[in-house]
Write a protein that binds this DNA or RNA. Structure first.
Lengths: 217, 217
DNA sequence: TCCGGTTGTGAATACACGTTCACAATAAGC
DNA sequence: GCTTATTGTGAACGTGTATTCACAACCGGA
């Protein structure tokens, strides 16, 4: 082993990085302390100098992913004032994030992380909700300034936006990177954009939300 | 134990059912032969009378899920000739399928199943592709008869359709059934429908697919 | 009725993993 | 330079797991 003694903050960073790498390569199931330790040149027991348990380490990793997701939203919002354009940029940033962090979909979609740990599920749901709130915030801004349709609530549109990326991300991980996420995003975006844009202001259509419209079976 | 001797086909059905139930409750990670055996009133070793290995059992389970997914598509197509209406029905059937088979998203999205087993990944990708092909088939029909826009390829639209369900399904599992999948589907469908409908025939817009349009960063 | 194949059992095996602990080596503060 | 807290090591432990095997009970057909 390297036998080198480093400060605990440094090791913690190394360990979370290594964890992300292992999860990217072998999934959450394949995540073992041995594999993480090997990657940073430590023995499994040394990990316990920096994290009280494997679970605590995973929590730190999730926190890092959360920061990156929120960072993407903040960056997209900072770049432009046009909400629709902000969404387009967020889409690009998010696909890039997925492509550079194969661990992200695995961590967030795999149930290993939260099953049997209600507080974990709550945390993960919080990450999702936070992201969706961010997207919904952009959308609401667009609804206020009239660029985005107001007959569908912002949250639903935010989830629809997530649908722009998620299946592509799944296909991408499943195909081991062969599926063209970026291409799919480029193809799907115009469709989405057109769908959320408010109908042209001149001709005010009946934009009443269709309440419980039920077409006969 | 029940001590009852049943034919192997019956046991195989019971075992796949039990596996689905266990995965629904405890995820793929929490799937153990012991748990499955307990659920059907057998000992773990008895399972080997009906499946050569745990992996083989999982394969059978995936096959069952594949059948149900394809069944949903076939049923939706059989019910109507209108492609857009078929998609709407498929959406309903799919959400129902997810709600009744919590194991479905877990099996299909968790990487436990396929990581480290390239042939498994291939199989799972095949399930996805088969489903997408089915959806794309409906869409292509709509493109031929002019009800669905032709400037975006059917596959991309099919993936977008999947995005209508998948994030909702994830939120649903994550919130332990509290999230309203059906409501989300109802809210998102009109948006999707309007997005894929071909622009009204009278005013023929320039519907050339934008090839590599790149907006400056 | 008898017999062979099928189904079920419980004990045993082998392995991987998280975690603990006593001890060694090193860095930091006085 | 001495002391003390920090960091790293290797061995050990306990647990949960898939899988195997010898044996028992049973069903179905001759």
């Amino acid at each position: 082993m390297s036998r080198e003694k480093l400060h605990t903050e440094v090791r913690r960073d190394q360990l979370t990085d290594a964890t992300l790498a292992v999860v990217a390569d072998h999934g959450l199931r394949g995540l073992s302390l041995a594999a993480v330790a090997r990657r940073v040149g430590l023995t499994p027991s040394a990990i316990y100098r920096h994290f009280p348990s494997k679970d605590a380490m995973l929590d730190a990793v999730l926190e890092r992913l959360r920061e990156r997701l929120h960072g993407a939203i903040a960056a997209a919002r900072a770049e432009t004032d046009d909400p629709v354009e902000a969404l387009r940029r967020l889409l690009g940033r998010h696909t890039l994030l997925v492509r550079h962090n194969r661990a992200l979909p695995r961590m967030v979609l795999s149930d290993d992380y939260h099953l049997g740990h209600p507080e974990r599920r709550q945390r993960l749901l919080g990450v999702f909700s936070g992201y969706l709130d961010g997207v919904a915030g952009i959308i609401r801004q667009g609804q206020r300034d009239g660029s985005i349709r107001s007959d569908v609530n912002a949250r639903s549109l935010a989830i629809l936006f997530l649908g722009l990326i998620q299946p592509a991300g799944v296909l991408w991980t499943l195909s081991d990177g062969r599926f063209d996420v970026t291409g799919q995003a480029r193809a799907a975006w115009p469709v989405f954009e057109q769908a959320i844009r408010a109908p042209a202001p001149p001709r005010a259509r009946a934009a009443r939300p269709p309440r419980s419209r039920r077409t006969p079976s």
